[in-house]
Amino acid sequence: MNLLPDIYQVKAIIILDKNGNRICSNFYDLDLKEFKTEKDKREFEKVLYNKSKSSNCELELIEQLLVVGNKTGDIMVFVIGLQSGNEIALLDVLTTVMSCIKKICSQPGSLTTEDSSNVTISKKSLLNDFSTLKLYLDEIISDGIIFELEDDTIFSRIPLPDQTIVNAIEMAKEKISYFTSSR
């Protein structure tokens, strides 16, 4: 038996909306049979969603995998590891992911209240700032290895654009008209 302490602790981070549709899913171990193809991944998300529909989705065991999750606002966040792993380490990862999500949703211009103590977590805000979400996740996990969990350190490693976000939204709006007209 391979006793080598496992450093590839995180197998996936999955963020779904309240209907079980993917917002952002990072799969780190494509050798796992659950994550081999896009179809497997979608299937796994479905299983995950169905299991957590009725519960508060804090914990699930799915085959050989261990899932810690959190339901807030209109999204669900899951951190997935192996059953042989340390669930509290996964919980730490989840906590960091959650505070990054909060940070994104509380940014000025993200169309939600600016009161930091009472942030509305919403799929809308996450999609609005999708690239920042991807960047945060990139700083938390590197191919399954926990890279950094200190939220302030992570925030400092992702520089925000100088231009105000409002400008970006203007820009986005231009794009929308472009897309809708082209359709």
Partner: peptide, 27 residues
């Protein structure tokens, strides 16, 4: 693939729609 979803999310704003309907060729 996400097309059907937009009907449920009546509050979904335009930027979300924009991402959902993103076309690979165009990008």
């Amino acid at each position: 693939k996400f097309g059907e979803k937009k009907d449920d999310d009546s509050e979904s704003n335009s930027s979300e729609l924009m991402l959902i309907n993103l076309d690979k060729g165009q990008v």
